[in-house]
């Protein structure tokens, strides 16, 4: 049985295996669709809406939608890019994102997306919410000021027994991702580094290793996010 399907993104023909999501299929074909909460290897949730595309004229999230034969997809258009920029702007004003003072600056996916879409200033008013910083773990700092609630740490950082280091606390606008206090005490350097690397922003920072890379050599200093995917 033939398991491949064909569809189009911005006029370019994409050939993919049946069952792949649009984000995955696009990536394999050299087309970058921006994502933030999505993480390879864990089930997508379509939470941040950065990967919004138009399928046959209808807005959908490409991380959760399986590719299907004959789809006509719009992605890199002025209308959709403007929506994506608005999402980034909302994330910037809803937290406290002080890039100049952040250890993740230069390696931050939220910042990189803001660069890609040329955010000079958010069009929404800043909310400056009062947030806490949890530095109780000997290995990491969990800074709620910078958290975008993507759940990537919750889904990927686990003990050998599958226990999660991070979990949701509270609801609504008080919702936060917190570190399990007991597991936080027992955290290894390897887990701490993985947690920092998997966090798209600077909400999880490994202690005692900040600012190791000089400006100019960091991940998004010279090339926009997605450059490694786009052909």
């Amino acid at each position: 049985m033939n398991n491949t399907i064909k569809f189009k993104i911005d006029g370019k023909e994409i050939v993919a295996e049946m069952g792949k999501t649009i984000v995955e299929a696009a990536k394999e074909n050299g087309v970058y669709i921006p994502t933030l909460c999505n993480f390879p290897g864990v089930p997508p949730k379509g939470g941040c809406r950065m990967c919004t595309i138009k399928i046959n004229g209808r807005f959908m999230t490409s991380c959760t939608t399986p590719a299907a034969a004959g789809m006509e997809i719009e992605s890199d258009t002025a209308e959709i890019n403007d929506l994506r920029k608005s999402i980034i702007e909302l994330l910037f004003v809803s937290g406290n994102h002080f890039c100049p003072a952040c250890e993740k600056s230069g390696n931050c996916e939220l910042q990189a997306l803001a660069y890609k879409y040329q955010m000079m200033v958010p069009k929404f008013p800043y909310s400056f919410p009062l947030k806490e910083v949890d530095a109780s773990s000997p290995k990491i700092i969990k800074d709620q000021n910078r958290c975008v609630l993507c759940q990537r740490c919750m889904k990927t950082i686990k003990t050998e027994d599958g226990e999660r280091y991070f979990a949701f606390e509270n609801r609504g606008d008080k919702l936060e991702v917190i570190l399990d206090p007991e597991l936080g005490q027992k955290m290894t350097d390897e887990i701490a580094k993985l947690a920092m690397d998997n966090c798209p922003v600077g909400s999880i920072i490994q202690k005692e290793v900040g600012f190791v890379e000089p400006i100019g050599t960091r991940k998004y200093d010279k090339e926009p996010i997605g450059t490694d995917i786009d052909v």
């Binding site: 910037f92 002080f98 800043y126 400056f128 919410p129």
Partner: peptide, 11 residues
């Protein structure tokens, strides 16, 4: 543009 480091006191 956004208050910068002085705005760290905003909360």
């Amino acid at each position: 543009i956004m208050g910068g480091l002085p705005a760290l006191r905003n909360g």
